[in-house]
Structure formats: C-alpha cells, structure tokens
C-alpha cells in the first residue's frame, strides 16, 4: 500500500501538495474527478517517504499518510 493516500474526489486541483512535496513524488492527473478538477496523484510512489508535507498543506484534508512501524522497517531492510 502506498504511504500517501489521496482522495481524488476531494481534490480541487490547487496543486499545493505537488509544490510542497520535497521528493517530487506527486503530479496532477490528466483525468478529471467527479467535480471536474484534475486531481493530484502519487505518480512516483517509490519516492514517497510519508513525510506528510502534502497532507499538511492540503486545504481539503484529502490526503492520508501511513508510515511503517520501526520493527517492520527493519524487517524490510533485512530482507531487501
């Protein structure tokens, strides 16, 4: 599961999340949502580290952020 979950139907296409993402992982979609806006999408999920800058800036509270627990991160590192 991606660390950054964007609710496309809440998005109004203000692009603040895209501008504030330090990893440049977000882009604006070519598709339109139910309200007719181009929503933001996580175009590069491999770059996302769950810093939540996008969610802090989102005026619509349309982004949820998940992070791996420390122990799970260590397991992933051992396997990887």
């Amino acid at each position: 599961m991606d660390l950054c979950q964007i609710h496309a139907d809440r998005c109004k296409g203000c692009e603040l999340c895209v501008q504030f993402c330090p990893k440049h992982a977000l882009e604006m979609s070519e598709e339109r949502n139910a309200a007719g806006y181009h929503p933001a999408v996580l175009a590069h999920p491999e770059l996302c580290n769950g810093c939540a800058m996008c969610a802090q800036m989102c005026p619509e509270t349309g982004i949820e952020i998940y992070r791996r627990q420390k122990r799970a991160r260590q397991d992933a590192a051992n396997q990887g």
């Binding site: 809440r10 603040l16 992070r67 791996r68 627990q69």
Partner: peptide, 30 residues
C-alpha cells in the same frame, strides 16, 4: 507485524465528512 502500517495523518474526528465549499487553494479548509 502483519499490521505494519500506521496511519499518522488523517481527517480529525471533529471534522465532518462533508467536502468544503471553499475555492481551490483557500486556507479556510486548512
């Protein structure tokens, strides 16, 4: 470890699910 993802940012409980009527980019929502 099966449940290894923790939600660290979500909609506050006191905020209703209704989408805001504010214009795109307006800080009222924030």
């Amino acid at each position: 470890d099966l449940v290894d993802l923790k939600c660290v940012f979500e909609r506050p409980q006191s905020l209703s699910d209704k989408p805001f009527h504010y214009c795109p980019g307006c800080s009222h929502g924030t």
